[in-house]
Design a protein around this nucleic acid. Structure first.
Length: 487
RNA sequence: GCGGAAGUAGCUCAAUUGGUAGAGCGAUAGCCUUCCAAGCUAUAGGUUGCGGGUUCGACCCUCGUCUUCCGCUCCA
């Protein structure tokens, strides 16, 4: 195992040990690829979400939010393409370990038959396949594969597993009487909740193109292999913003958001060399341009965020399936014609970031094991999370040096003054150094210590997490100092 | 999903060819302490992942199962 993988394991252990992330339902042996956030994890996650939300909606006058339901009308997913594109029967060859889509496998075999001059057999095979696929008869399909001696191109054997359905989407029943219930899906992406509300939002918030709609929320995907901790989960949270633009301007807006989103990451103080763009070469059929922002995780560069130029595909699809006009009337004057741009379906630039991946990014970026020599020559060490102050679960730890002589009372006063402004942590137990270490381990950027001198001149020691430096400041300056750091 | 490895206290690990589990750290409650972990005392915490089998007796042998890790496979 490499050093990098060891570091990843250490981060996962640390996340559990200090109440950031637990495996779901751990007392029942866990649920694969599902995780829970603990006390500090839920704070950090909320802080990341809030920071993103604020940077989108508060700092952009032309972006507003929605909070669409997880349940959506089933037709939504027909329109989006998720029903048809992500529910394929799959089969594995046990010898080569290669997995095939059943239809691809049989079609490839039919092609070979045609090459061999057996067009009739090929047609019969494909017809039989269509029939069985239509009935979802997997046993029949497997029989068909075996009867026709379909072999794996790699191993050359026909040692097949049973056919399994791969469904990207989870389904459930709406309605209390199951018999009469319709199948509905847990959304596999939040974006469609924005698209179906496009006109509601545009009209009620009186938005003019170009404008954006932001949303954070849970999404659900059945992953074939879901590993790597919270990087790939079955239940996860997205932070998406769909930006609606006039057709023809999508290129410049794509460029704008590509730069703006990277800037958002860098402003958190994370080094630029940990990031890179990955421009998609193979584009989805509806996309004009697409790229990922990748981060250098311990397991390599991986996607954190995607920026996609999606044309008018989604809105057009919803117009087609819902039979409701998705037009926007643009009153701005086109200089070329001297007339308003008029009616059109806007094009969309999407920015989509995984909240859980951003959480992992922060943890990986922040985690450090430090070692140094003390004055007496012995070795000292600590584990510290250099979480950006504005995202840290606790902002300030308030620590009376001794739990007597009136020091706790002064500390409590400071606590009461600060706790409505930002998250504080109070502790009077154990040696001061140990208390500092505990706060380092959960990423608290500031500790303040109240001692006897505080009683004389109202100064306290403020201790900085990253440098471990200490300085004395007046107790009345503490709140301001922290507020400035997290603004 | 396939193959390999592993599962003992919150964590890291012990337990002599099978004789019904211990330590350190951590936690909690005190004590002592005037500014960077590892001072003192006490307490809590384990049907040895779970379920069968062999045996007088299983943490140890065996089968199944679950979970995790590694490799492969899949991934709008």
């Amino acid at each position: 195992m490499s050093i990098q993988e060891n570091k990843f394991q250490a981060i996962i252990s640390h996340a559990k040990e200090y109440g950031f992330v637990f495996q779901s339902s751990e007392i029942y042996d866990g649920l694969s690829a599902v995780y829970d956030y603990g006390p500090y994890g839920s704070e950090l996650k909320k802080n990341i979400r809030d920071h993103w939300w604020k940077s989108m909606t508060q700092l952009h006058e032309n972006i507003v939010g929605v909070d669409a339901a997880i349940f959506m009308h089933p037709t939504t997913w027909k329109a989006s393409g998720h029903v048809d594109n992500f529910s394929d029967p799959m089969i594995d060859n046990k010898d080569s370990k290669k997995r095939y889509r059943v239809d691809h496998l049989i079609e490839a075999h039919a092609d070979k038959l045609i090459e061999g001059g057996k067009a009739d057999e090929a047609k019969a095979l494909l017809d039989a396949m269509e029939q069985l696929l239509g009935k979802d008869d997997y046993a029949g399909l497997k029989q068909l594969i075996e009867d026709n001696n379909v072999v794996c191109t790699i191993s050359g054997t026909k040692n097949w597993t049973d056919i399994r359905q791969f469904n990207l989407m989870f389904d459930t029943k709406l309605g209390s009487v199951t018999d009469e219930a319709d199948t509905i899906y847990l959304r596999p992406e939040t974006a469609q909740g924005i698209f179906v509300n496009f006109l509601n939002v545009q009209k009620t918030a009186r938005m003019k193109v170009p404008f954006g709609i932001a949303q954070t929320g849970k999404a659900f995907r059945n992953e074939i292999v879901a590993r790597q901790f919270i990087f790939r989960m079955r239940e996860f949270e997205q932070m998406e913003m769909q930006f609606f633009v006039r057709p023809g301007t999508e290129g410049e807006w794509y460029k704008y958001w590509k730069e703006a989103r990277l800037k958002w990451h860098l402003e958190l103080g994370i080094p630029q060399d940990k990031y890179r763009f990955h421009d998609h070469v193979k584009l989805a059929f509806y996309a004009k341009e697409a790229c990922d922002i990748e981060f250098d995780f311990p397991m390599g560069f991986k996607e954190v965020e995607g920026i996609h130029s999606r044309t008018d595909h989604d809105l057009s699809q919803h117009q087609k399936f819902s039979k409701k006009k998705m037009n926007y009337f643009d009153n701005d004057v086109d200089e070329a014609t001297g007339k308003p741009y008029g009616n059109y379906i806007p094009y969309v630039i999407e920015t989509s970031i995984g909240l859980d991946r951003m959480f992992l990014l922060i943890m990986c970026s922040a985690y450090e094991e430090e070692k140094w020599a003390k004055e007496d020559g012995s070795e000292d060490s600590r584990v510290v999370l250099h979480i950006p102050a504005k995202l840290a679960p606790n902002k300030l730890a308030i620590l009376p040096l001794l739990k007597k002589d009136g020091l706790p009372e002064i500390a409590r006063e400071l606590m009461n003054e600060c706790k409505s402004q930002f998250k504080c942590f109070y502790e009077e137990k154990d040696a001061i150094g140990r208390r500092y270490r505990r706060q380092d381990a959960i990423g608290t950027p500031f500790c303040v210590t109240i001692d006897h001198q505080t009683k004389e001149d109202q100064t306290v020691t403020i201790r900085y997490r990253d440098s471990m430096a200490q300085e004395r400041i007046h107790i009345s300056k503490v709140k301001e100092l922290v507020l400035n750091a997290i603004a």
